[in-house]
């Protein structure tokens, strides 16, 4: 299966290993993953700040870059949600419709399209799963604690395929980490405070590795972990599923 690989801007620049893990994982699972080199960003930073109009050129660039693919896979629930939900302000051409319906978060693609039922990877560590909000409540990658539905989580189901992994149960399984894009900069005090609360929850459960479907949450949490010299590592779910050693 041929897929277009979208590596979000901040992963491209700061966490190439997450992009590599995503690509390798897709290749291992028999996909022909292509990375169109002209790609940049989905445009969310501008739009979430209220400047959708400044994002329109980026939206068009994204569509042009990815319109050739039936599946566009990205290791980010947040970017997926943005394209799917908020690309409604540009003209809905066939290309736009195709891209919006073809874009998939990595976990979603593995779980729903490839229907992965086994993985050749081992990760013998205590892992805490952070449910990134846009994936959880935007894409419904899991049930969430608010709604009265059958509990489920695509990320958790995938992690359970990894040999030796020990998933911990958190006191607040799906509270926001406080990143929120430019919120992290506009409201730094509360953003950091929210991150500290999340880290404390993981820490109290003896988590060695904190994982999530969105590297942006992890970038924020890692920033706090490093500042406070905590003994917790962060890893994107792609890295764990791909069997990266700690």
């Amino acid at each position: 299966m041929k897929v277009g690989l979208f590596i979000p801007c901040y992963i491209d620049q700061f966490y190439p290993q997450v992009g590599i893990a995503t690509l390798e994982l897709l290749e291992k699972l028999g996909c022909e993953a292509e990375y169109p080199p002209g790609q940049t960003c989905c445009g969310q930073p501008m739009a979430n700040t209220g400047c959708e109009r400044d994002a329109i050129a980026t939206y068009h660039h994204f569509i042009d870059t990815f319109q050739a693919y039936d599946h566009i896979v990205t290791p980010s629930g947040s970017c997926t949600y943005h394209v799917r939900k908020h690309y409604d302000i540009i003209e809905q051409t066939e290309a736009v419709k195709k891209v919006r319906s073809g874009v998939l978060d990595l976990s979603e693609f593995l779980h729903d399209v490839l229907k992965v039922s086994s993985l050749d990877s081992r990760f013998p560590h205590r892992v805490g799963l952070h449910q990134s909000c846009h994936g959880l409540r935007g894409l419904r990658l899991g049930s969430g604690t608010e709604r009265v539905v059958e509990p489920n989580s695509k990320l958790e189901a995938l992690l359970r395929l990894v040999d030796g992994i020990e998933l911990v149960e958190l006191s607040r399984p799906d509270e926001c980490c406080g990143f929120g894009g430019t919120f992290a900069i506009n409201q730094p005090d509360i953003s950091v405070k929210m991150g500290k609360s999340r880290i404390a929850d993981h820490e109290s459960k003896g988590v060695e590795v904190l994982t999530a479907g969105d590297m942006s949450c992890l970038m924020h949490l890692e920033g706090i972990i490093r500042r406070q010299k905590k003994n917790i590592r962060v890893k994107h779910i792609a890295e764990i599923l791909n069997g990266a050693p700690l």
Partner: peptide, 13 residues
């Protein structure tokens, strides 16, 4: 309250 990420030598691209 946060450190910046440790930037790698090369981007994914």
């Amino acid at each position: 309250g946060r450190d910046l990420p440790e930037p790698p030598e090369q981007s994914f691209k």
